[in-house]
């Protein structure tokens, strides 16, 4: 297997062969995975699923439908509250992972992809706010343009160009966020759930030593 020289074989051994089926879809977890803190990751994913489902409905009916239809307004409300739930659970998930120092044991990439997912979510959420086609979106777009313009980004991402913002919000950014989230989940499954921290009484010296030891 290692002697294979084809590109395909190299990609296979670097990707799919790294996974065992029970890592990807486990039916057992280490005994220390026993706390409610572990539910916030899956609640975040579930909220994202709800955002995508309600977003599908809004997409099929178009950006201005919800102003004139009661059903449309309700679907918009589902979309908004799913977003609020999504951010609530994502931030609490982040708090939990911080206090667990969950980057230990070569899990730095998991931490980084999680942070990137957070930032991509903020930008995606923001583009959603500026395509509401109402007073709120007008105000946010005219205010936020100054921040992007000051950084030189405004020349390419024009918050006042509603058509551009719609395309970003329903196609490009969900794709980017989707890739980051899938990558994050694969890393979580591949590396497994981080084990408990060793207890250290006084200085954190021994912790540092332990970290370097790996």
């Amino acid at each position: 297997m290692a002697a294979e020289s084809s590109w395909t074989a190299k990609v296979r051994s670097a990707t799919v062969e790294k996974f065992e089926p029970e890592d990807l879809l486990p039916d057992h977890q280490p005994a220390y995975v026993s706390s409610w803190i572990y539910v916030f990751g899956v609640l975040t994913i579930a909220s994202l699923a709800m955002i995508i489902l309600s977003g599908f409905v809004l997409t099929f009916e178009g950006p201005a439908w919800w102003h004139s239809s009661n059903v449309g307004h309700y679907v918009n409300s589902v979309h908004l509250w799913s977003v609020e739930l999504f951010f609530i659970f994502m931030v609490v998930h982040l708090w939990g992972k911080f206090w667990m120092a969950a980057w230990r044991g070569k899990r730095l990439a998991t931490w980084i992809t999680g942070c990137l997912a957070f930032f991509a979510s903020i930008i995606t959420g923001f583009t959603g706010y500026i395509i509401q086609t109402n007073f709120d979106s007008q105000w946010i777009a005219t205010q936020a343009k100054d921040g992007f313009n000051a950084m030189g980004i405004g020349a390419f991402f024009n918050t006042l160009n509603t058509g551009q913002a719609i395309l970003l919000h329903v196609s490009l950014l969900p794709l980017v966020l989707g890739i980051i989230v899938v990558w994050h989940i694969i890393l979580v499954r591949r590396k497994g759930v981080v084990p408990p921290m060793e207890e250290v009484d006084s200085a954190t010296r021994s912790v540092e030593t332990m970290e370097v030891k790996k």
């Binding site: 706390s35 409610w36 803190i37 609490v92 708090w95 939990g96």
Partner: peptide, 23 residues
């Protein structure tokens, strides 16, 4: 919203997690 986040975080730390069969 912010208070709710702190509440569920605290609850997750404090509330006992149901026991499972151990292997």
């Amino acid at each position: 919203i912010i208070i709710f986040m702190f509440l569920i975080f605290a609850a997750a730390l404090i509330l006992p997690f149901p026991d499972h069969d151990e292997h």
